[in-house]
């Protein structure tokens, strides 16, 4: 959701003392989203692999990490991390108190909220490799995954080799 506003946006980090279960994260994010004034949301935490990555069990599916969805507004996204930090960009500083009130209501353990610069303002090397020197929409800075794998992340829709 992108909201146009005259006020200066602020960025905050919600840092709960415990990792959040998907259901708790869903409820918390729902409430935060409903309180309005959100420009961007990022969820950060340790990776939850879909298969055992190392050892004799390598490749065995991890059922507990499958099919975890977060639904926000009319968007659904797959949860691939354990929710440890929530980074928000709010349209103005006035919104912080509302977020704090939601966290107090939804989280059964202590948390901290810090205001800081979280999202990137300059392109990374990966951004430069993908988009070149000019990036119009600054919101996508830092979102390029340099470890993306062709086999996993690229869907080839046609094998005709293009128009040429």
């Amino acid at each position: 959701m992108v909201t146009k506003s005259d006020t200066k946006p602020v960025q905050i980090e919600i840092f709960p003392r415990r990792f959040l279960k998907p259901a708790t994260a869903q409820r918390l994010l729902d409430e935060i989203y409903r309180s309005g004034g959100i420009l961007r949301i990022t969820i950060q935490g340790p990776n939850l692999p879909k298969t055992v990555p190392y050892g004799p069990g390598k490749g065995i599916p991890i059922e507990e990490n499958m099919n975890m969805l977060l639904e926000l507004g009319d968007q659904a996204l797959e949860l691939r991390v354990k929710v440890g930090r929530i980074w928000l960009e709010l349209e103005s500083e006035d919104r912080i108190e509302g977020v704090k009130a939601v966290c107090e209501r939804m989280l059964p353990f202590p948390f901290s909220i810090k205001k800081k610069q979280i999202f990137r303002t300059k392109p990374t090397v990966s951004d430069y490799a993908k988009y070149g020197s000019e990036v119009e929409d600054k919101r996508i800075l830092g979102l390029v995954d340099p470890k993306a794998m062709k086999e996993r992340d690229l869907a080839i829709l046609s094998d005709t080799g293009g128009d040429s």
Binding site: P16, R17, R18, F19, L20, K21, T24, P46, N47, L48, P49, V52, P53, Y54, G55, G57, I62, N65, K82, G84, P108, F109
Partner: peptide, 19 residues
């Protein structure tokens, strides 16, 4: 293997994180 968890916050139910 995949031992990550010693220095991470605990889960909501007080269990150590295990991916």
């Amino acid at each position: 293997c995949t031992v990550h968890g010693h220095s991470l916050r605990l889960d909501e139910d007080g269990m150590m994180f295990d991916m």
